[in-house]
Design a protein around this nucleic acid. Structure first.
Lengths: 339, 339
DNA sequence: GTGAAAGCGCTAACAT
DNA sequence: ATGTTAGCGCTTTCAC
């Protein structure tokens, strides 16, 4: 009893069409040198048999896979979702398809070695290049291009797209200061995160520029999560002299502030102005003041960069003159900053 | 000049460790019959060299890939995102990783033949099974299991997880009726969609049960998008006798209603009650009344189903006694419905 | 307990 | 213009 064959292979197509596999392969890959009647015939056989290229087999032989990968520690996190939207948009405009890889568990991908594993897994086999979001490793070995978004380390060796954390924070603060606030709280992210530190520095400098001394009591240590954001907000709002505005270092944190404010019966923005650094779509319905949207733009730009790298086109400064609040850099040089 | 070799293969590991490839392969796949000292040695070599399995090559030879696929027409759509969250959760609990496949362009995957292509692409090569969201094809050919979420056709031949569209709509209406509303508008989805029709029927029947005659003027034809939702809302609210509540057949539509209400200076829910069938997270911030969350639950359940199928465990009714508003069915039989 | 070798489905020389 | 053939990196018999 022989095994029933379910998959239609290129061999089946070739046999049915009465040609050789290489001819079929040529048609499949749009090579020019096939007689158009042979081509039509093969195409119709392919259609009849319902043949589809075996991704794995193809990937093993050819360089071009028409597929880019997106590696994310967590697929459900608002930041990640925004990034995906941007990547999606760039993908739609390109000839590439997208493969998002997740372990489904943040903890699995939290170590640098795991990150390297996923990069290799995709890049050494089925994708032409990968985008990695919020990597903690400062370098990767890979034989296909890599672009990172919002790396968590300060001096990555790979090309990068990240927000103008410092400048953005300064602008956010200027906005709040412009509203007349004198006591503005800040909730940070984890102290080892580059982004958080730059945002904190922006907070401090903006206050200083406005001639307002920094009150260390108003700076709470968060971790970019809603839960801790809520806790920090409660702490700040329970001070003898509570802040009239809170600048949350990211959007998750801002949500936490929102929750706490609600629990405490405070209206937003009447009783308390809340500003989140990022700009997740929900924010506008929550009455939070947010910066211009740029997260999905990071995904968009990163994807464009990656595709350029794949095509071995150069990443010149000219290309990345942007109007958005982003920094684009390859491993050694900044290509563009916020306009 | 020979080509520089960047990828570390199983051959390299074998050579470095001074064993044969098959031994390395055995270690890689956790076979028992390897001397533990050989094993340790190989493991350390693997670690040193930074070797990672080539997904493509592995997929070609073995059945088990430890990877499930999720095929989505659009990755940015709120419904899709909720589904992903649920899938993600189930994946996290399993030994499988997740690969989300998108073309980045809804239009690309809109035809049944494209759907089949993506199913084959993943299932015949790198994944052990796929989940397909909102498919329009009524059957698929594949040699690995398929589970669908919210299929757009009425009698699919593949296993399915979908919402209790009729019952859910009835309950949504009962809620609005319970609030005292007599004139309730309805905005449908496209007429060929199974889900929309069942929701519309729920709307009609609930009114009938409440002894309220259906006013056809209050039924607007939408298409599950925010834009058309807004247009329909404007139409309904401009009637001589406008509705005091609107039941939007999905969440996107509800957002459109929200927009229009804002433009017209109506407060929600004070001036207008809005109910969306789905329950996207933003809704609660918009003051919309929504049903219990179940979309991500669909993703969760579908993933569990798929994994059972992959493991060739049976899909028995017992397993799917659920408390959520879902219908779970394999191709011929309902396994569970809303409690 | 380990190695040699066949071959998965495909692409890309190289022949013809 | 088309066919033949050699692998890609891996798993898996089948020997030893």
């Amino acid at each position: 009893m022989r095994k029933k064959k379910v998959t239609v292979t290129i061999q089946d197509v070739a046999r049915t069409a009465g040609v050789s596999v290489s001819t079929v392969s040529r048609v499949l890959n749009g090579k020019a040198d096939v007689a158009s009647e042979t081509q039509d015939h093969i195409l119709s056989v392919i259609d009849n048999l319902g043949y589809t290229t075996n991704l794995a087999a193809r990937s093993m032989r050819s360089f071009k896979k028409n597929l880019v990968g997106l590696i994310m520690p967590d697929i459900a996190y608002p930041f990640a979702i925004e990034v995906m939207k941007g990547v999606n948009r760039a993908i739609a405009e390109s000839e590439f398809d997208l493969l998002v890889y997740t372990t489904g568990d943040v903890r699995k991908s939290e170590s640098a070695s795991h990150e390297q594993k996923y990069v290799s897994l995709l890049n050494n086999s089925i994708t032409d290049g990968v985008i990695i979001v919020a990597p903690i490793a400062s370098e990767f070995s890979s034989n296909a291009p890599i672009v990172s978004i919002d790396p968590l380390v300060s001096n990555p060796t790979y090309p990068t797209v990240h927000a103008t954390n410092y400048q953005g924070a300064v602008e956010a603060m200027e906005y709040l200061l412009g509203l007349g606030h004198k006591r503005i709280g800040f909730i940070s992210g984890r102290a080892e995160l580059e982004s958080s530190n730059r945002r904190l520095k922006g907070y401090r400098d903006a206050l200083e520029n406005a001639g307002i001394p920094v009150d260390e009591e108003l700076i709470a240590s968060g971790d970019y999560t809603t839960e801790i954001g809520a806790v920090c907000a409660r702490k700040l709002l329970s001070l003898d002299k509570p802040p009239t505005a809170i600048f949350a270092s990211n959007d998750q944190t801002a949500m936490g502030v929102f929750q706490t404010a609600q629990e405490m019966g405070l209206r937003i923005p009447e009783d308390l102005s809340v500003m989140g650094f990022d700009n997740i779509s929900e924010s506008k319905y929550m009455g939070l003041t947010t910066m211009d949207q740029f997260i999905s733009e990071m995904g968009f730009v990163a994807t464009q960069m990656l595709i350029k790298l794949i095509k071995r086109e150069s990443l010149d400064t000219q290309t990345y003159k942007m109007k958005t609040q982003l920094v684009v850099r390859n491993s050694c040089q900044e290509l563009a900053v916020a306009a």
